[in-house]
Design a binder for these strands. Sequence first.
DNA 1: CTGACTATTATTAGTTA
DNA 2: TTAACTAATAATAGTCA
Lengths: 158, 158
Amino acid sequence: MTRRKIQIKKIDNTTARQVTFSKRRRGLFKKARELSTLCDAEIAVIVFSSTGKLSDYASSSMQQVIGRRQNLHSKNLNKMVQPSLEAQIDNTCKTLSSNETLERTHGMRQMIGEVLQRLNVEELQKLEELLEVGLSRVLKTKVCLSMLSLFGGIIIER
Amino acid sequence: MTRRKIQIKKIDNTTARQVTFSKRRRGLFKKARELSTLCDAEIAVIVFSSTGKLSDYASSSMQQVIGRRQNLHSKNLNKMVQPSLEAQIDNTCKTLSSNETLERTHGMRQMIGEVLQRLNVEELQKLEELLEVGLSRVLKTKVCLSMLSLFGGIIIER
DNA sequence: CTGACTATTATTAGTTA
DNA sequence: TTAACTAATAATAGTCA
């Protein structure tokens, strides 16, 4: 597309491929950012490199769709002052089960977004272990189906 | 960026904004496709227009990340020959609760992907209603926390 | 590897049909 | 409206430090 026109197929040379990956990924994110700003659109871009490394762009309201917090890249990730995991879970449970006025699905989705914004990776892993131990097989099945339903619903509604 | 350089801020004129949206969205998807092909990367791009309409691009392995089936756009979506919703759920439950060798989390994630690929939008909505009725509030809380944990885990691991 | 350079191609803003 | 056209800007493949 410049010194020479190239054809769009996998670049064999590993080094060249990595360089192109970096350049074009930056370009892709820039385009996404511009489109979002110019047209008031919400955009999420998720990229896995061939070595499995994840990077992403998300306009503000899409942060929760890709399940990450605005400040995930902060060096101070684990040093932030925040309530304990237990307190956060407890608070989430209380909010979930007491707020009768929230439409259920909407409330759940919002909750997912809100809590994701407060938990970091390590905490999510602890939470997962916690559930791992506590859930019966029957419950797991229901959980899975619920996830399926809701996770599907978040994205698929169109 | 052509007849004139523009500055990147929301385009006021509605018509112009819509036109630009269409053009640039196509450009964004093309860039994503090229990056995926050239560099063997897995990419998902999710776009909501300002009016809320969803469109997306996903390289093959990312189809399940954005929760849609390869043939979602098929006109024959609802005419496909497939087992009843009840049979699918039943089968999913059996698989989930009988396969002892599947590592739990991995199994769940795989299941989500697999089932999403078989259910269509209407079926997901029916499934959601079904769960709506059946789940107690306590279970809902656990379901939400599980989703949080697993949904977070899918994306956040890096 | 990483960043800067630039000749060229690709994208697109504004225009016209 | 929607589509095609181009002049002009933007992105980038290849190169070099």
